[in-house]
């Protein structure tokens, strides 16, 4: 990750100004791709957000909550 970060940090400063102010407003061929990408990313990853909370994680949060309420 560090290498990735350093590589892209160099580009960040140089390309900040080149990035469009409103990339969320697709138009033209790039905009069409962005809309397609948006839909496919949701198709690919939305299932991850809909998974139930793992029991051990729920228990960890609940235990802390009870401890705080008592204390």
């Amino acid at each position: 990750m560090d290498e990735d970060k350093e590589r892209s940090r160099d580009k960040d400063s140089a390309e900040e100004e080149a990035a469009p102010a409103q990339p969320e407003r697709p138009s033209g061929p790039e905009g069409a791709f962005d809309v397609w990408l948006h839909d496919r990313l949701h198709q690919l990853y939305d299932s991850v957000t809909k998974e139930p909370i793992p029991p051990e994680l729920a228990a960890l949060i609940e235990a802390d909550k009870r401890k705080r309420e008592k204390g």
């Binding site: 390309e15 900040e16 990035a19 469009p20 962005d34």
Partner: peptide
């Protein structure tokens, strides 16, 4: 600006 740039370049 960096956040915008990262998303733009990723796309």
């Amino acid at each position: 600006g960096t956040a915008k740039s990262r998303v733009f370049r990723a796309r």
